[in-house]
């Protein structure tokens, strides 16, 4: 019978393995099978040894992915790239706003309006008020969608969706 410690060791390993397997099509049955195999093997050699024999979860997942015999899109990597791109643009917009407010204040205070893709942003820097207000347009929405989508598709290597197995003619990078 497995102890709580064994269960924790097994589940922690499987969680890391699942994360590394996210790009594998229908990976959950493999995780379930591995859980059963780990539990059964632990009854023979102990959970620590059973987990150690599997090696690093990332390497094990790479083994399953390479046995697919074809490259698969990396959706998780794409999502990380997309999120980082949106975060970078949001950071730049914030830095621009802070810099603009600081400049207005150094120049004696006042209000400044700027228009970007149809959205008007108002910067106010006065003795009692420090504010940034902006309207929202569909063009801005499209801009942010593109900022996410382009790195997402490139990071995911979306062209691999159309790649066939090595026996086929289509080859992906």
């Amino acid at each position: 019978m497995s102890s709580t410690r064994d269960t924790l060791v097994r589940e922690l390993y499987l969680m890391r393995f699942s994360w590394a397997m996210q790009d594998y099509p229908r990976y959950k049955p493999i995780v379930r099978e591995l859980r059963t195999e780990l539990t059964a093997t632990a009854a023979e050699v102990g959970m620590r040894q059973a987990v150690a024999d599997l090696g690093h979860p990332r390497v094990l997942a790479d083994g399953y992915l390479s046995e697919l015999g074809r490259p698969v899109p990396r959706w998780t990597t794409g999502a990380v790239w997309g999120a980082l791109a949106v975060a970078a643009v949001a950071y730049l917009a914030m830095a621009y706003a802070v810099g603009t407010l600081d400049t207005i204040e150094q120049m004696g205070g006042g209000t400044l309006e700027r228009v970007f893709l149809g959205a008007t942003t108002t910067f106010v820097a006065e003795s009692s008020t420090l504010a940034v207000e902006s309207t929202f347009t569909w063009q801005v929405l499209v801009f942010y969608a593109l900022v996410f989508t382009v790195p997402f598709l490139l990071g995911a290597r979306v062209w691999r969706s159309w790649a066939s197995s090595p026996t086929g003619q289509t080859v992906a990078a």
Partner: peptide, 26 residues
């Protein structure tokens, strides 16, 4: 796991279960 043990006994003593399971799956 029994296959891993049998492969070890056959001389492939550096083979790990992590190498074998993806092959079985395929």
């Amino acid at each position: 796991y029994e296959l891993v043990t049998r492969l070890h006994e056959g001389g492939l003593d550096d083979l790990s279960a992590g190498t074998l399971y993806p092959v079985l799956n395929r």
